[in-house]
Amino acid sequence: MRVLLIAGGWSDEREVSLSGAKGIHNALLELGHEVDLLDPAQDFSNLMARANKADFAFINLHGSPGEDGLIQAMLNRTSCPYQGSGPESSFLTLNKAATKTIFDANSILSPKWELICAAEGCNGIEKLTPPVFIKPNSGGSSLGMTFAQNAQDMQSGIEKVFSMGDSALVEEYIKGIEVTCAILGDEPLPLILITPPDKAQFFDYNSKYALDGAEEVCPAPIEEKLTDKIKEITLKAHTLLGLSGYSRADFIISNGEPYILEVNTLPGMTPTSLVPRAAKAAGYSFSKLIEKLIELGLSRQK
Rank of each mutant, 00 (worst) to 15 (best):
I174V: 13
L298G: 09
D153P: 09
V132T: 13
A105L: 11
L293N: 07
E291F: 03
A237W: 00
T234V: 15
L5Q: 07
L18Y: 04
S45E: 12
R77D: 12
D166P: 05
N150H: 03
L298T: 15
P136Y: 01
V179Q: 06
N95S: 08
K22G: 12
E15T: 09
Q152G: 08
D39H: 05
R248V: 04
N255M: 14
D228G: 14
Y209T: 08
N46P: 09
D153V: 06
P40A: 07
N60I: 13
S142L: 01
Y259A: 09
E159T: 14
E159G: 15
N255G: 13
I6K: 09
K288V: 11
T93D: 09
V132K: 08
D153I: 04
R300I: 06
L94A: 02
L169W: 01
G84F: 00
T195F: 01
Q42C: 10
G23A: 08
E216F: 05
L37H: 11
A214T: 14
V170H: 15
F162D: 08
I24E: 09
Q155C: 12
T265Q: 02
P87K: 00
K231N: 14
L193Y: 06
L94Q: 04
L211N: 09
A73N: 00
Y246V: 13
G124Q: 10
F147M: 06
L211R: 12
A98K: 12
G32V: 07
I71M: 00
I260Y: 07
F286H: 04
E30N: 14
K231W: 10
N137A: 01
A182D: 15
L109D: 10
Q42Y: 08
L293W: 01
N264H: 04
E224V: 09
S167Y: 10
P267I: 03
N60R: 07
S19Q: 15
G139E: 04
K135R: 05
L266H: 02
A214V: 13
E295P: 13
I192M: 10
K225E: 13
L240A: 08
E114I: 01
A7V: 06
D39L: 02
C122Q: 15
D212C: 01
F286L: 02
V35T: 06
K236T: 13
E159P: 08
M164C: 07
G268E: 10
G69E: 02
H33G: 05
R2C: 07
R300P: 10
E15A: 13
A249K: 03
P40H: 06
T227Q: 05
E114T: 06
D204H: 09
S11N: 03
L70K: 04
I183N: 10
S17K: 02
L293H: 03
V132M: 09
F56M: 01
Y173E: 08
L274P: 11
N137F: 00
G213C: 08
A51I: 06
K229D: 12
F103G: 03
E120M: 12
